[in-house]
Write a protein that binds this DNA or RNA. Structure first.
Lengths: 142, 142
DNA sequence: GATGAAACCTAACCTTT
DNA sequence: AAAGGTTAGGTTTCATC
């Protein structure tokens, strides 16, 4: 992973369908040399996948919340993972330091749908209580 | 935005470089009909961009934290935005309901770099104090 | 949904360090 | 060897019908 790799990733992040020749021109390589580096990074799993950034509002996920989870007793991370995976509105989650046991990001169509998703989280065994921060206005998305 | 659009988006999310013919085969459309729909969604800004999902650890952003921001007095959202935008480690942020004024997601190479980024957040005028939850293990990424 | 020209991808081969 | 350049042929895109 050198500076050229990083430059290629920056280009791909902005437009992952740009021709290799165009990316190569930006980073100072030929099209095939660029492709070879991209192929290597895909094989490496440095690049996990080629994807799209979709407007959340356009597909019914306009309401978002950061949720702290407090569990009863001790819970195995993989248990927690299994349980959160069953709730599609949970788009991100991790165990954390601090008071809470875990933090999750929930996305739903609206307030009601978000509330229902939160109920599903709380209904799950071993979750004692939650503390939510509903996003009012998005300031940064990078 | 109908079910076919949603199906196309699901395909693009998994592999945004798949040929239109392949996506069309999955959703029951010809290559050109598929392309027309994708072009419309790009024009719509339903699809914001074609991008890549990169392993954070591979490019020096392996340490992550959810940070609650508590401000002094009242602060205009756009002020907060301007200030957080200046800190590249802040990858996400929004004003929220609840005790905190805002929540942000920070990503840095390691603990030290995260701490430095946090200091930058706290040093910014009008930020009274912060409350961080450092991610120990990532459970879900969707 | 189909067609054809232009652009692009891809893999093999060659050159350089 | 390892990394980049070049070329040729097959595939994909894209505008038009």
């Amino acid at each position: 992973m050198d500076d050229i790799d990083r430059a290629i990733i920056a280009e791909l992040r902005a437009d992952s369908r740009a021709p290799y020749a165009a990316i190569g021109a930006e980073v100072g390589l030929s099209a095939s040399a660029t492709k070879r580096r991209v192929d290597r990074m895909v094989a490496d799993r440095t690049i996990r996948r080629f994807t799209v950034d979709v407007d959340p509002a356009a597909e019914g996920a306009g309401t978002e919340a950061y949720v702290e989870l407090f569990c009863r007793g001790t819970i195995a991370p993989h248990e927690l993972r299994r349980m959160l995976l069953a709730i599609p509105e949970v788009v991100e989650a991790g165990t954390v330091t601090g008071e809470a046991d875990a933090v999750g990001v929930l996305r739903a169509a609206g307030d009601q749908e978000l509330e229902q998703a939160l109920e599903k989280v709380r209904a799950a065994g071993s979750v004692d209580h939650t503390k939510s921060s509903v996003v009012l206005s998005r300031l940064i998305t990078r």
